[in-house]
Design a protein around this nucleic acid. Structure first.
Lengths: 343, 343
DNA sequence: CTGAAAGCGCTTACAG
DNA sequence: CTGAAAGCGCTTACAG
């Protein structure tokens, strides 16, 4: 014998009034008599009435749901972002429709359709590494559904963005290696498209320039996918080719760890022979031996702020208020550890 | 100028028919004329019609949403579970309402209320370490909303469960240490309540018994919280007390890493002086130096299967079919690595 | 073969 | 102060 869910009707019938009155009493409308209000509130409390969210949302033409498209859930940085989003969504009475693209543009397209069908009020997206066009996301804007891009964004797509200062991160990482005496610094970069790969690369270049170190194309290696194995492969090949290397700035911590393995296998010492800096300051940097220096990226904060921006725009959109996309850049900082500290 | 969402009415008006007919045409009802059907399908395609999920769900008295209560999102094992859940939910046309308890019973209670209000069709829950009573989850069952517990479960609560074989894991881990020549094996256990802490502890005990090694209370240390720092603190204290230790079986990989740090700081060698085995086979075990031996736990698989079980029960519940809770135990296996292999 | 009607649970402008 | 009615977008039993 299943219990039946308590609705406005349950309360109304039991009190001999209409659902309209019950609804108003619960929502503290001014015109309700004190007596009725008390009766309704007491009974609602007693029966543990919970409004049906689906009905409220359908009626209000608002789903109170936001979609998130993320490249990978099993990932320290992204799961931190998710955690920030969920916490703030909860505070604001929003539900979150979480999806992952697995870094594939095709999946991103399918997901976009589903989110649209689900009637989300807004979308938070971090683009896949493959995403070369954002056609599949334009539909949201056409229907007045705000989109906020975070971490991996396309600046040609006119939405708000929130990223970390990848340029500054790349600059700081490289300057730190130079300060430690490195002169032949390898940069293992990411794919062509993602702004974070570009920003970090530009920071690397600028740091060399600032210190009068010539930029050499062959000191920039590109991952086919941003994974540990690629860091390992690229550094192994480089060391076997007898290129002179005394520092490595890797696009991510996992790539840095791959590099570290190749360096150790070559019989070289970290940081004495080759110093290493990664990016993200993920948990793993503190457990790998040697501890990996890294650029800290505030994931939780990014998630929270991305949703703040989005919900503000959702409100504006509902009120038909025109707004301009905003562009936020969160600060990064270097956490110098054993992998680069030569002292 | 925002575009308006396409509804059945948009199509009906444009074709001069009623929404009922449009609905039937789209759902491939038998009685529709070929001509009407084609006209509707063509226009729906052209306008990229997507049914309003809220309306469908309200009408069908099914939210097609399941709630997940998880202790921590930023956690390798749990994020793998989430990933498995989301993938299968997507296949089945379900949405997922993801929440985290932060290992706090109080938060778990609040979350349960929210999930109920949200009208989820079912709930997947991994209990917080603190959870001593499941009163807050009973309401779901009373209303015919199935609950499946995973990983950290309470067997007194009559729902289906899916866990890994913690007993076998603890047994294998300890037997392995014994095989490597350890005779004085420390077990760093988790809290009193979680079944996984109990199972692993019992496996430890049984392995000692199987090998005629006496069980000694003082070789079992308990974490106040299951975190790295506790592994460090407990092992450090033990070593300082001059207790004889040549092996450590830790409740989790992070606790094992804390233990490893304490051992190294004491000037002892891993695995020569003290061998270590952790639990979960998280990513970090492969990057820590020395690589940490661990018991593999299939997170993605657990998430997927938990949802499979849940959705089956949701269906039964909707059809008022009686069912008995099922209890699934996934296999674990040891991944022996440098931290315990003495050769 | 298709329309008219009812209803899922809610909210709110309109009456009285 | 409260009721009656309409409507959010859908589905489906009932007519014809």
């Amino acid at each position: 014998l299943k219990k039946q869910r308590v609705t406005l009707k349950t309360i109304a019938d039991s009190l001999g009034i209409t659902v309209a009155t019950v609804s108003r009493a619960l929502k503290d409308y001014p015109d309700i008599s004190a007596k009725t209000k008390k009766a309704v509130l007491d009974l609602a409390e007693k029966l543990d009435y919970q409004p049906n969210l689906l009905a409220q949302r359908l009626r209000g033409n608002l789903s109170k749901t936001v979609g998130i498209i993320i490249p990978e859930i099993v990932h320290h940085f992204f799961s931190s972002v998710i955690s920030g989003i969920i916490e703030y969504a909860d505070e604001q009475g929003y539900s979150v429709f979480l999806t992952q693209s697995n870094e594939l543009m095709e999946q991103e397209k399918n997901i976009a359709k589903k989110l649209f069908a689900a009637g989300v009020d807004g979308v938070l997206v971090s683009l896949s590494d493959e995403t070369s066009s954002v056609e599949h996301l334009k539909k949201f804007l056409e229907y007045g559904i705000p989109v906020v891009q975070f971490d991996k964004v396309n600046f040609d797509f006119p939405t708000s963005t929130i990223i970390v200062d990848d340029f500054k991160g790349g600059l700081d990482a490289t300057q730190h290696l130079i300060n430690q005496g490195c002169k032949n610094i390898l940069h293992i970069r990411g794919l062509d498209l993602p702004n974070n790969a570009i920003g970090r690369f530009n920071g690397y270049k600028k740091a060399l320039e600032n210190n009068g170190i010539p930029f050499r194309e062959k000191y920039v290696l590109q991952c086919e996918r941003v994974i540990q194995e690629e860091g390992y492969r690229l550094v192994k090949e480089t060391l076997e080719s007898n290129m002179k290397v005394d520092g490595v700035f890797a696009i991510t911590d996992m790539v840095a760890i791959g590099a570290a393995k190749a360096i150790e296998e070559a019989g070289l010492q970290i940081p004495k022979d080759i110093a290493i800096v990664g990016f993200s300051n993920s948990e793993i940097t503190k457990y790998f031996n040697p501890n990996i220096s890294s650029i800290h990226q505030p994931g939780f904060e990014m998630g929270k702020q991305a949703l703040e921006i989005l919900l503000r725009e959702v409100e504006w959109s509902n009120k038909n208020i025109e707004y301009k996309p905003s562009h936020k850049v969160l600060k990064t900082h270097l956490e110098a550890r054993a992998s680069s500290l030569r002292k």
